[in-house]
């Protein structure tokens, strides 16, 4: 549903999305990486469980919430990918416990 233009000339950045390896590019936000990986939907809502994905890409709508390196409810469109980053799509409300802590 999204593809990279051929004239994109940036460094690959290896991340994982729900455990599977994915090659993002330097300059991608986490939300952009998800879209590049074909994930239009990246969470479900706490209120009704409806699927949602990145909408505004500028930090306004909070529909791009994902778990990043163990920290839940991060705005994927405002966080740049980094090598080794673990991105996990999120179901419903976050848990109280950070799995990383």
């Amino acid at each position: 549903m999204f593809e990279r233009l051929p004239d994109a000339t940036t460094e690959p950045v290896a991340v994982t999305i729900d455990g599977a390896p994915f090659e993002a590019r330097a300059g991608d936000s986490v939300a952009a990486a998800l879209l590049a990986a074909g994930r239009l939907a990246s969470r479900t809502t706490p209120a009704s469980g409806a699927p949602r994905g990145p909408f505004c890409m500028m930090g306004v709508c909070f529909d791009c919430l994902v778990e990043i390196d163990g920290v839940p409810s991060q705005q994927g469109c405002t966080v740049a990918v980094a090598p080794g980053m673990r991105i996990v799509t999120q179901r419903g409300a976050r848990a109280a416990e950070d799995p990383s802590s």
Binding site: M1, F2, E3, R4, L5, D7, A8, T10, R25, G27, D28, S29, A32, L35, A36, L40, A41, S42, P51, R52, G53, P54, F55, C56, M57, M58, C77
Partner: peptide, 18 residues
């Protein structure tokens, strides 16, 4: 999912060439 704003699409193009 899949419904996005024009600003979002512009942002993906400008920042990520997506």
């Amino acid at each position: 999912p899949g419904v996005m704003t024009a600003g979002a699409i512009q942002g993906l193009l400008k920042s990520s060439a997506l």
